[in-house]
Each structure stands twice: as structure tokens, then as C-alpha cells.
Computed example of a mutant assay.
Amino acid sequence: MEKRVRVAAVGDNCMDCYDDLGQSFPGGNPVNVAVYIRRLGGEASYTGAVGSDSSGRRMIEAIAAKGVDTSHVKVLEGKTAVSHVRLVEGDRVFGEYEEGVLADFRLCPEDISYLCAHDLVVTGIWGMIEGDLPSIFKKVPVAFDFANKFASPIVDQAIPYVTYAFFSYDEESREDFAKRCCQLGLAEKAAEEEMLAGFMRAVQKLGPKVVIVTRGKAGSLAWDGSRLHCCGIVECEVVDTMGAGDSFIAGFLYGVLGGKSIPEAMRTGAENSAVTLGYSGAW
């Protein structure tokens, strides 16, 4: 009998507001991963905080409608987080971010016990729970999306307590990436892929079981401590890139938790991203 994958997503959420289009969609890194895990056939919960405004109600209702457990979503007095977005030739470009009540989001001991009852906990750089990772990591595997924030101090704080570490390498992150490589004592090389491979090897030695780097149209790389795995993209019509990276993370995690090899899980991630790229908004 096939194992039922059960993932706990915890951390930030936000309304993605496409100001030019006059549209808004519920989203946020861990929220998106939870929804995509459900889409793939797994079970998922989301733990986080929304405001007491209409956006908060809409967020909870939308997540629950996708079959995600929202029993541990806190409603705090104030405004739900908002990310302002523009679409430029299909690529989402982020503008101003309004953190709202997420600035006050904290886990309580009961939340941590609930999270640890799952097969895996997934969070990210804006999740506000890096201080709780040591307690969580003792009981359950942890996946963390560091996005393109290579030089963030959160990387140093979180990485020893992460099982699957995800990074996103793009034009915007080159300076941060170079700074982190310098901190790791890596010699600068001309070949981009060689530098990425060196970075992944160095980071993996700090704790993670697997380090994964997504590179947009260039596909993804994964280092498992003994081998560098490469995976291309699944060609598709791109309507909106919002949620594509989160879709890859969900597909990868769903794959490895279901017993797939690293290359197979990477392919599942790429296929899941292609689905999300075909419509507007994260989900």
C-alpha cells in the first residue's frame, strides 16, 4: 500500500496583489507548498497568522477549500500581509511588501507538538520560526526555502537544523551568492555551475541531507553528499511564474517522502512547476 505523505507547512502567508490588473490571490511560500502537496495527492496543514481583516478570512477560506488543514492558523488583530506584484512578460516582479500581523507571529509549544506529528515540516526565509528549528528538527525532518537570500544571517542560524535545503539562483542573487561563497572560503571560478556545485558541497557539510538549487529556465541541481544531480525544466506555456519555485519544492518533497530517488523527485518538482506556470496566481 502506498504511503500517504503528510506535510506541515509553517510560516508566512500573504495576499499577492497584482496592482496593474486589479486582482489579488492568496499565497505565501509555505501556504503554496501545502496547497501543491494536496494537489499531488498528499495531506497538508498550514500553521501561521492572518489579520482580523477581510483578507485574513479570505486566506483561511481559500486554503481550507484546497483541503489543507487550517486548525492552527492564528487570527491576530490587524492586517494580513500583502505582497505587491507586477507581471512583466509573464515574470512576476515583486514590489512593496506589507508584513502586517506576521511581525507578531510566534509558535507556542502546542504548535510545535502539532507540527512534529507530520512526516516533514517545511518553512522558509520569511517564516519567522528559525529559532524553533532545533526543537522541531529533533523529532521530524525539516525542509527550508532560503529563496535567493544566500547571504542572509538566517542561513547560518537555520542550516544545521535543515534536512532539505532549497536555494534559488538568479540574476538578482549573484552578489549575495558571491558574498556567501567568500564566507565559505570558496575560490572564485569562471564556470557558474562549478561555483554552484562548490557552494552546495560546502553547505551540505553544515548539516543538510540534500542541498537543492533551482535556476529558473536552467533547471535545478541537487547535491546529496556523494553525487551532483541535474534536472532540466518541463517545457510549457508560461502565463505567470508566481509559485513555480514553491511547486518544485512541493513536487520534490512529495517525491522523496514517497520513496522516489533524488533525480525522480527533481523531475516530479519540474513537472509540478509546469502546471503552475500555466495559469495566473500561485493557485
Rank of each mutant, 00 (worst) to 15 (best):
F199R: 06
I249R: 12
S83R: 15
G198F: 10
L107D: 05
T214G: 03
G11K: 03
E98C: 05
A151T: 10
R39T: 09
L102R: 08
N148H: 08
C14R: 08
Y46C: 03
V10H: 01
F94K: 15
S261T: 13
E172I: 11
I159M: 03
T123V: 11
V140K: 03
K139R: 10
G207E: 02
I249H: 11
P30F: 04
I233Y: 10
G27A: 14
G251E: 01
V82I: 14
D176Q: 09
V31S: 00
R106G: 06
C182L: 14
N148F: 01
M195T: 01
L133T: 01
T268K: 11
G124F: 03
P160R: 12
D156F: 06
C231Y: 07
F146D: 00
Q23G: 06
I233H: 09
C231K: 07
S226W: 01
G127A: 12
T80P: 07
L253V: 13
S71R: 10
Y254F: 14
A218D: 11
Y36F: 15
R174G: 07
E110R: 01
G131D: 02
L102V: 06
E188N: 08
G90Q: 06
A9T: 09
L206N: 04
M242V: 13
L120T: 03
A44W: 11
V35R: 07
V85D: 08
R57M: 15
G232S: 09
S168Y: 02
L107M: 02
F150G: 07
N272T: 14
V239S: 12
F146Y: 10
P26T: 11
G269N: 13
P134R: 12
V93N: 09
L221D: 02
L76D: 11
I136D: 00
R4C: 11
L87Y: 04
K79I: 05
A222S: 11
F177I: 04
C236I: 02
M1F: 12
E264H: 12
G56M: 03
A222L: 10
A65K: 12
Q183H: 13
R180W: 02
D240Y: 15
N148D: 08
A250Y: 05
G67R: 09
D240E: 15
G259Y: 09
L196Q: 03
V275H: 09
V50I: 07
A218L: 11
A190V: 12
R215K: 15
K209P: 03
G90W: 06
Q183I: 12
G281L: 05
